[in-house]
Amino acid sequence: MELKSVMNRYGLKQKIFSIAPLFGLIALVVCFLAAATAKDLNIAYSMKNILNQSVVVAVIATGAIFIYTLGSFDISLGASACVSALVGGMVYNATGSVTLMFLTCVGVAVAIALINSVLASVFNLPVFVTTVAMLSVLNAVVLMLININGTGSQIAVPTDAVAGLNTTWFKLLVLVLFFAVCLFVFDFTKIGRLQKFLGGNPVCAKLSGINNKRLAIIAFVMSGIAVGLGSFLSITYAPTLTKNTASSVGMDVIISIVFGGMPVSGGARSRIYAAVVGAFSMTFLNQIMVMFNLNSGIGQMVKAVIFLIVVSLAMSNQRNKEILPR
């Protein structure tokens, strides 16, 4: 009772709720360290492993936050990453230039994002609709690329070519730099501010002179850049590209964003760090489950349950706001 009233007094409850995902991540890290120590694992090695598994999703999800902020949704991110990686791999094999490969990855992903958003704006459709169509197109493109250009089932970039970039430092650098750029755009420029407002109330946004189409296109370009970076990173980690490259990324991005405490409906409560927090939380959770020998079926179910709990907690927090119609 005492505690409750003190918390109430300083509006602490809301603040705690808003950084709860961060606490979640810290708790998972602590659990992981405890378990790893108990089992006498090589912690440095495990951490590296975790970074490898998280970084691609973290980068792509950070870009995708811009789309989610608008209250919108892109289901084709994973497929887009796969296509970008494949085309990037082909370009490397044709030219031998890592730089060109990098530029191709980003270029292809941004092009796909642009097609998504420009089509939606031309036909006045919700962007989500075009991304659904895009998903099937991209899946077909993946098969086509592999059939024409690969050995039949894969496109392989020589491991030596990218080994130099498959380092912890490089990955961290990409993540930190990209995150910094996104943080800047999201919180310190007109673009991010207007996007949050647009997500919160499109009607009012229109009457405040906000151009929703242009902002949607910018959001998709940001996510396109992220997908390009993500696909490049996944080539460096696993240079043999197949139709399964980045296959789980699409789903993982969605889960990470929600895990990180991003409101599903977007708006002013959107947080740019949600993606990174969510992506790492998920990987730590996976690792912990692996350590306890939960096979992947059960693991998936545990994830699903936690996912539901997180979403319902987030929603109940919003409902509690007692938004009175006044």
């Binding site: 310190f188 420029t189 207007l194 407002f197 009012c204 946004a205 405040s208 708006g267 002013a268 938004i323």
Partner: peptide, 26 residues
């Protein structure tokens, strides 16, 4: 108004061209 946003968000959304540096940087 956007109810689910702060007073600051609501007031500044129409005033960005007034106080944002180069109408862009907040």
């Amino acid at each position: 108004l956007c109810l689910d946003a702060s007073i600051r968000d609501n007031i500044s959304v129409a005033g960005l061209d007034q106080f944002a540096v180069s109408r862009f940087l907040i």
